[in-house]
Design a protein around this nucleic acid. Structure first.
Lengths: 209, 209
DNA sequence: GTCTATATAGAGATAGAC
DNA sequence: GTCTATCTCTATATAGAC
């Protein structure tokens, strides 16, 4: 019985991990493939071999995390829907907490939350189409359930409020705050506090007359 | 009496205007000075002559708009404070509506709202320091007034809620929504609706128990 | 203050050996 | 699947003529 291969991830996986971290820090345009490959300690040509192009690499970084987060959100939503009178707070938690969980991942999940924030800001049409095509149904499911929770709320207002929630969530999770906070508690406590605060803030907002 | 000079803005101003629009569309790293100068119909070397470097050009794009927006916010805040019992909604409007007004500017104000959203996402330390040093006092004034409006709210929760508001505002104004809306009303009606929705959403959120 | 021309560096992508 | 070497393009910045 032979020994397993050397205890490092594959070239492809190392490129993905490093690219995610660098995209979070420097953005897509600001991250060169040379920086990625040197930090991943792989050859420059490996990116084009494994991903074909920089654009495809960006897409793959998204697919990896978004698949997991979207599935977690839908499972949590399904669970929240089980009770006879769906509780608004539970629906919001189903949306918020998988993002929180991501930013607590021991590996680079925290970086991805910032990558996601950048993706919104970039308004890259290719990326928007990819996200909308592949993960738009998740937002639509939440929108459907929220409409059920809040029958008095008109549809347009509901869409606005979902946008506000998404904006607040992305900002809070990516930790963009300009106002310096007093205490820098540990990461876990910080994120859990953020999630709890956002759930109560958003629940009140969704219920506003 | 001689004719006034040709009816176009100065080279410097044209560069600023075009740069703002391009930064909004392609980001800072994604916008080359060549693109700026060709679109502004000025010579490539003019950027370095007038601004010294690309970084300085970025800073100047911010200074131009942020000065106006911050002053408008502070004036509106001052006005909201005049009444004996300060009304939360008025404070929120003082924060939100100058951003709205910007995005309705006939000139490139709408672009700047997106530039601002990018600035948050970029997490560029140079830019963050510049913004915090020059405009941090505006957020602190709002935070002080909100604390006065909501004496039962603890300080940390207040900071979180301000972050949520800033996130929601930036998203909504930059029009990041992934969910397609039914109607595409005119820009003005769209923005005014957004502001009104956000004021009521945020007011309820800030008042949440 | 504006131009041309260029220095210098870095980018993404690919061909072809191993 | 990984490497070296290189093509081609584009970037920021500046020197020096006008």
């Amino acid at each position: 019985m032979t020994r397993s291969p050397a205890p490092h991830f594959s070239t492809k996986q190392r490129i993905l991990d490093v690219a995610e971290a660098l995209f979070a820090e420097h953005g897509f345009a600001g991250t060169s493939l040379r920086l990625v490959t040197s930090q991943a300690e792989v050859n420059l040509a490996a990116v084009n071999y494994h991903f074909g192009s920089k654009d495809n690499l960006i897409t793959e970084v998204f697919r990896h995390r978004m698949d997991a987060m979207s599935q977690a959100r839908l499972e949590r939503l399904e669970h929240a829907r089980k009770v006879p009178n769906v509780v608004l707070e539970e629906v919001l938690r189903a949306f918020i907490e998988p993002a929180l969980a991501l930013s607590l991942d021991r590996d680079g999940g925290g970086a991805f939350v910032r990558v996601l924030a950048r993706a919104y800001a970039e308004r890259n049409e290719r990326l928007r189409t990819f996200l909308s095509d592949n993960y738009g149904h998740v937002l639509r499911e939440f929108s459907r359930t929220l409409a059920h929770c809040l029958p008095a709320l008109d549809k347009e207002a509901l869409y606005w409020r979902l946008d506000f929630l998404a904006g607040a969530l992305t900002y809070a999770m990516a930790d963009f705050g300009l106002l310096r906070r007093d205490t820098h508690a540990d990461e876990k406590a910080h994120c859990e506090r953020a999630a709890a605060e956002l759930v109560s803030f958003a629940a009140a907002g969704f219920r506003a007359g």
